[in-house]
């Protein structure tokens, strides 16, 4: 049975510079609950724009996005979704340099109605989940690249999102750390039943997803379901 759609892109397009640069062109996609999807394609094919459009950081110039069947049309709706339903992991980590690992995670809970002591408790719990319990009080510059990305992952899952968007999460990591981060992401996705949409260039990462979307020139060139991981292994 096909998973229930979590987010649907209906004829979505996105262009810059008054339409001179087209980053996405008539994209129609549906992402089901609990799915893991790899988005692949050459540089400039629109992968990152797709991720940014799916979390409302970029607003589509044409078409509409549906979240659990409802159209998302306002910035306020997108802000609410990013706070409570969508977690984002960037290639660049994007941590706050003045905040400790724990505080970097906590800051994503501001505005979610959780008190400060509970925020701290949950942040420590999330860091424990990603294996950084003993690094909670360290500043980002005191952490390795892999540890920083773990903090970013902890931040992305702190509000129990239904959708995790990861834009080349291992792009800045060595192969050992990259593998560990991927294990962590997939483990969390499975354990929490979240949908994972991940931009990647690496074939070994792509095969771990349940579906692959190929992009070219801002369009979905091809998409196909992947065999279960156990079969691959």
């Amino acid at each position: 049975m096909a998973p229930k759609p979590l987010i649907v892109l209906d004829h979505v397009g996105h262009s810059f510079d008054d339409g001179r640069i087209v980053a996405l062109r008539d994209v129609n996609l549906s992402f089901g609950e609990g799915e893991s999807v790899a988005v692949v394609g050459a540089s400039g094919s629109g992968k990152t724009t797709l991720i940014l459009v799916m979390c409302g950081i970029r607003i589509p110039t044409t078409g509409v996005l549906l979240w659990k069947g409802d159209p998302v049309t306002t910035l306020r709706q997108w802000t609410d979704l990013r706070r409570s339903e969508i977690g984002i992991v960037f290639q660049e980590f994007n941590l706050f340099p003045t905040l400790t690992a724990s505080e970097n995670v906590e800051v994503a809970m501001f505005g979610s109605g959780v008190g400060s002591s509970e925020r701290r408790r949950r942040a420590e719990e999330a860091l424990k989940t990603v294996g950084l319990a003993d690094r909670a009080t360290h500043l980002p510059q005191e952490l390795s690249g892999g540890e920083r990305q773990r903090v970013a992952i902890a931040r992305s899952i702190i509000n129990n999102p239904a959708l995790i968007l990861a834009d080349e999460p291992t792009g800045n990591l060595d192969s050992v750390n990259a593998s560990a981060i991927l294990d962590l992401l997939f483990d969390l996705q499975r354990a929490r039943g979240a949908t994972l949409v991940m931009v990647s260039h690496a074939p070994d990462q792509v095969v771990r997803c349940s579906r692959q979307i190929n992009m070219k020139d801002g369009q979905v060139f091809d998409q196909r379901s992947m065999p279960a991981r156990e079969e691959v292994l």
Binding site: I57, R82, R83, S84, I88, N94, G111
Partner: peptide, 16 residues
């Protein structure tokens, strides 16, 4: 600028 972008990305409203 970048930090403000991150805050927006993690769900901080403009008012916040």
């Amino acid at each position: 600028t970048r930090e403000i972008g991150i805050l927006s990305a993690i769900g901080w409203s403009t008012e916040r």
